[in-house]
Amino acid sequence: AFSSEQLARLKREFNENRYLTERRRQQLSSELGLNEAQIKIWFQNKRA
């Protein structure tokens, strides 16, 4: 489960760009304390 802070950040990123570069995913992973797979799957689900 994502914290409300993490979700807000993911939604902001998604609004700016529906697709993440690998580098951006790595940055978000480290900033949010999530693993890259969690972020990747969140974006895939959000696009679906």
Rank of each mutant, 00 (worst) to 15 (best):
R47M: 13
S4Y: 11
Q27A: 10
W42G: 00
K46W: 11
I41L: 13
N35T: 15
N15W: 08
E22T: 12
I41F: 09
I39K: 01
F43V: 02
I39T: 01
R9M: 08
R25G: 12
Q27I: 10
R18I: 09
K11T: 15
L20Y: 03
N17H: 10
S3C: 03
Q26M: 12
S30T: 13
R24W: 03
K46I: 09
L32G: 00
R47L: 15
R47V: 12
K46D: 04
E16C: 10
A48I: 09
K11V: 15
N17K: 05
G33F: 04
A8P: 00
L34F: 03
Q27P: 01
E16W: 07
F14P: 00
E36H: 05
R23Y: 13
E16Q: 13
N45D: 11
Q44M: 11
F2Q: 02
R12L: 10
I39Y: 01
L20S: 02
Q38V: 14
F14I: 03
L28Q: 00
Q26S: 08
F2A: 02
K11L: 15
F43R: 00
E22A: 14
R12Q: 14
Q38N: 05
F14D: 01
L7W: 03
F43M: 03
R23H: 14
T21N: 09
Q27F: 08
L20P: 15
N45H: 11
R18G: 07
N15R: 12
N17V: 04
Q44G: 05
A37K: 10
S30Q: 14
K40V: 14
A8H: 07
L28M: 04
L20G: 01
E36F: 05
S4N: 12
F43T: 00
I39S: 00
S3F: 03
R25I: 15
I41Y: 09
A48R: 10
N45S: 09
W42I: 03
E5T: 07
R18W: 08
A8M: 09
G33I: 03
Y19T: 07
R12S: 11
F14A: 03
Y19M: 06
E31K: 03
Q38P: 02
N15Q: 12
Y19G: 04
E5I: 08
K40L: 14
Q6H: 05
T21A: 04
S29P: 01
G33P: 02
N17S: 09
R9D: 03
Q38M: 14
T21L: 02
E36T: 06
T21K: 03
E36S: 08
Q44F: 09
S4V: 13
A37N: 14
I41H: 09
L32T: 09
E36I: 07
A8S: 09
F43S: 00
K40W: 12
Q27W: 09
L32M: 07
F43A: 02
R18T: 07
R23N: 14
R25T: 15
L7S: 05
K11I: 15
E22H: 13
W42L: 02
N35R: 09
W42C: 01
E36G: 06
S30L: 14
R18P: 15
E22N: 12
F14Q: 02
Q44Y: 10
R25W: 10
R23F: 11
R9V: 13
S30W: 11
E13Y: 05
L10E: 01
Q26H: 10
E5L: 09
R47D: 07
L28S: 01
S29T: 05
N35H: 11
R23S: 14
N45C: 11
Q38K: 06
A48V: 10
S29Y: 03
N17E: 04
R12E: 14
E16F: 08
W42M: 01
I41K: 12
E22Q: 12
S3Q: 04
L20K: 01
E13C: 05
T21Q: 04
A48K: 13
E13A: 10
R25S: 15
S30D: 10
G33L: 05
N45L: 13
N35W: 05
Q6V: 12
Q27E: 14
L7V: 08
I39G: 00
Q6C: 04
A8N: 09
K40D: 15
G33K: 07
F2N: 02
K46L: 07
E16S: 08
T21D: 12
L32I: 08
A1E: 11
A37M: 15
I39P: 00
Q38D: 14
S29D: 01
W42S: 00
A8V: 08
R9W: 05
S30M: 14
A1N: 11
N45F: 08
R9N: 04
S3D: 06
R47P: 04
S30H: 13
Q44A: 12
K46T: 13
L10K: 00
S29R: 03
S4W: 09
A1M: 14
N17Q: 05
Q27R: 10
L32H: 01
L20E: 06
W42T: 00
A37L: 13
N45M: 11
I39R: 00
G33V: 04
S4P: 14
A1H: 13
Q6Y: 02
Q6E: 04
A48W: 07
E22F: 10
Q27L: 10
R12I: 12
L7P: 00
F2Y: 08
A37R: 12
L10C: 02
F14T: 01
N45A: 08
S3G: 04
L7C: 08
R12Y: 12
N15C: 13
L32D: 01
A48S: 09
L34R: 01
E36Y: 04
R24Y: 06
Q6W: 03
N35K: 08
N17D: 08
A48G: 08
R12T: 10
N15P: 01
E16H: 09
R24N: 04
L34P: 01
F14M: 02
L34T: 03
A48M: 11
N45P: 02
F14V: 01
Q44L: 08
K46Q: 15
R9S: 07
Q44H: 11
N15M: 12
E13V: 05
Q26C: 06
S4F: 11
A1V: 12
A37W: 15
Q6M: 06
N17C: 11
Y19L: 07
E16G: 05
E5K: 07
S4C: 11
S29I: 05
E22S: 12
E16M: 10
T21H: 05
R23A: 14
R18V: 07
F2I: 11
A48L: 12
E36N: 04
A1Y: 12
K46F: 12
K11N: 15
Y19Q: 08
L28R: 00
A37Y: 13
E5C: 08
Q27S: 08
E13D: 03
L7R: 08
N17P: 01
R23Q: 14
A48Q: 12
G33Y: 04
F2M: 10
R47Q: 13
R12C: 10
E36M: 05
A8D: 14
E13R: 02
R23M: 13
L32F: 03
I41P: 00
L34S: 02
G33H: 07
